[in-house]
């Protein structure tokens, strides 16, 4: 069969592109999580800023991912840099939104009690707000990571490598084995990531939920 034949003959390339895919997604996610958490926390201090940032991030999400990558080519050229920037930009919304919501939905009486006790704003942020928002942050990371894995494949179109290469080349060459290999491995990685992060999230929730 086409698929089996392809898997047997090209296993080295498959491994290489899978690894490449993971490197791109993990790098982008690392940047994205840091950026998203910092922005998400920062906007809790200013309602107007929060509105603007969330509106902007929402707008970002309506750009079709392929279009976003295509628009980055003239700026950053073909390759991994464009892919990573695109991925970071695209995965900001779920992160910013969940971090923001996670902090804003903390029971206000807890914060009143903390302030009344004489805890400094810094202590309240790092010892109370951030730990309490952790389950929400984890949920955001889960959504963003799963999204990033899928969109990372689209980066294959702009020469960033990764599993998207199989899909786009396979379609061009009408090689079903190639297309299916790319699609199946991609799906498996996404499902596995979703399940694993779901487990982690469950554990965090059990520890932190009020």
């Amino acid at each position: 069969m086409d698929l089996v034949g392809f898997l047997a003959s090209r296993w080295q390339a498959i491994l290489q592109l899978t690894a490449e895919h993971l490197v791109i997604v993990v790098t982008a996610m690392a940047i994205s999580v840091i950026l998203g958490v910092v922005i998400g926390i920062a906007i809790t201090f200013n309602r107007a800023a929060a509105r603007i940032v969330l509106k902007f991030a929402n707008l970002m999400m309506t750009i079709p991912s392929l279009a976003l990558f295509a628009l980055l080519i003239p700026v950053l050229g073909l390759g991994k840099a464009s892919a990573i920037v695109g991925l970071v930009a695209y995965t900001q919304l779920p992160l910013i939104r969940t971090v923001y919501a996670g902090i804003m939905t903390i029971d206000s009486t807890i914060i009143v009690a903390a302030r009344g006790m004489g805890l400094s704003d810094r202590t309240i942020l790092f010892k109370i707000k951030v730990p309490l928002a952790l389950p929400a942050v984890m949920a955001g990371i889960r959504t963003a990571a799963v999204m990033g894995i899928g969109i990372g494949a689209i980066a294959g179109y702009i020469g960033a490598g990764g599993l998207g290469v199989f899909i786009f080349q396979g379609i061009n060459r009408t090689s079903d084995g190639m297309v299916l290999t790319g699609a199946i491995i991609l799906s498996l990685i996404a499902i596995l990531t979703d399940q694993v992060l779901g487990q982690v999230l469950g554990r965090v929730q059990r520890r932190f939920d009020p």
């Binding site: 899928g150 009408t174 079903d176 790319g182 699609a183 199946i184 991609l186 996404a190 399940q195």
Partner: peptide
């Protein structure tokens, strides 16, 4: 449904191509 939603859209399209042609 949650598992299904984790599957990237591009992968679904690619799988369909693999099975149904373009």
């Amino acid at each position: 449904a949650r598992i299904g939603q984790a599957v990237p859209g591009l992968a679904v399209i690619a799988l369909s191509v693999g099975l149904l042609g373009v």
